[in-house]
Design a protein around this nucleic acid. Structure first.
Lengths: 242, 242
DNA sequence: GCAAAAGTGTTGTCTCTACACCCATGA
DNA sequence: TCATGGGTGTAGAGACAACACTTTTGC
């Protein structure tokens, strides 16, 4: 019944392999960093890529993401934020054949040294920022990274997710630096302080204080139970696409 | 090297099939409706499900979503909103074997009669609303539907997407009914009017008017170029998860 | 005292909410 | 003239931006 024209997809159901790729973001020296691996195998051997790997038989997607995360960072996955980002399925995105990748976004407190090994010949934190100078990552990973960053940036606006970049206890100043690093703009420390401490459930005081290198000691806080931030903390005018 | 323990995933790479499922929302009689099909084949024969189908060889994900959309609704896909929602990949979600599904969300202006045929023995618009009375859809489609609805609801807040539910030209009153239907709450018509008409690029006046059944004629508008809505139009306090 | 970071107070502006009120039409 | 929906005006509350000012430490 169907006449296949040149280049059109056949009517057979595609059998695909699925990978899970991770955009793992953290903060280092006041700048957002992403975990990248140098590929040890073809295709794209020697090129930088997001960490990830094939989904295994009988393995849930989310479990696969957790597994990759632990393999690459050695972090205890229980303590960090992991959410699905999007799925990338262009037919020719992988020269090995039809491979769908489900991308996940992970947010981690600062820098545990990455774990080298597995199929990545090298893993490192790379600073990510001005889109002016992107990496030339393998596959469509540049796009995935952009999407992940934008997701993180916009979620800071209307959720309390910024605390995911902080350690167990943190100061308001550290939390503010998360916003400044990801948004790439200065945030008024005084207004920020009020906003955060007056938003029910965003942070809870520990009663402790911490001495900075210089200056007045800052009160320490833990994450609060709130997840939504209402009213949101809006960046000054950025276009949202889609 | 690896010792497989009982129930743990094997180390072989999963080969999966991929489907694309659609949450197609529209408005009918002031209530949101979703397009459902009655399954004509096993599994879940006779049960309601979201429309969808298998990804074909060499077919891009997004193209597959467009194809399904056209097949099921007969709509011109150029005129409606289609975006990726999320991917569902629990190992046992499909009794036929390992099937990943990439869900898409589509928003359509009101009711073109659905196209029966293809592998769906029947297609219909079903009212969707109070989560108190969910459908008992096939697979994990109840979850996908919930996620799609919530996505649509929250996108009304900070984008101009509500116009996707309206015809080519529409009145502010009709646009307001989109918000009221999806949010399930009354919106003050007078404040809404100002908000919409004063937000640069949300709607553009056509200069025409339309006579309602009763009452003063309403000015007609088209969609404007803006996609983001700034400042957002916030629902009164709803928790955002994840 | 000085630098540096934490934290409070204050003022003007903007936006939203909640209404009162007028407009244009059909019955 | 009434009912119905469209549309403007306005006053009060809340949030935010901007910035002056105080606090607490190390040097």
């Amino acid at each position: 019944m169907a006449t296949l024209t040149k280049g059109s997809p056949s009517r057979t159901h595609a059998t695909v392999r699925a990978t899970v790729d991770l955009v793992i973001l953290t903060l280092q020296a006041g700048r957002p960093h992403v975990l990248l691996v140098e590929r040890g195998k073809e295709p794209y051997r020697g090129r930088l890529a997001l960490p990830g790997g094939f989904l295994r038989d009988g393995e849930d997607l989310h479990d696969a993401a957790v597994r990759e995360l632990v393999e690459e960072t050695g972090l205890d996955a229980g303590h960090l934020h992991l959410e699905q980002l999007a799925t990338y399925g262009t037919a020719d995105r992988d020269p090995r054949g039809r491979v769908l990748t489900v991308a996940y976004l992970a947010l981690a407190p600062s820098l545990p040294a990455p774990v080298a090994g597995s199929d990545a010949s090298d893993a490192r934190w790379a600073p990510v920022g001005d889109e002016a100078a992107p990496f030339r990552l393998a596959f469509d990973h540049d796009q995935i990274l952009r999407d992940g960053l934008e997701r993180a940036r916009s979620k800071l606006e209307y959720t309390t997710l910024a605390t995911a970049f902080c350690a167990e206890v943190f100061t308001i100043g550290e939390l503010r630096q998360v916003y400044e690093a990801l948004w790439g703009m200065a945030v008024d420390a005084r207004n920020f302080n009020r906003k955060v401490t007056r938003t029910e459930g965003f942070v809870v005081p520990t009663g402790q204080k911490r001495q900075p290198a210089t200056g007045r000691p800052a009160a320490l806080y833990r994450r609060g139970p709130a997840t939504a931030l209402y009213p949101p903390m809006l960046r000054t005018r950025v276009d949202i696409e889609n």
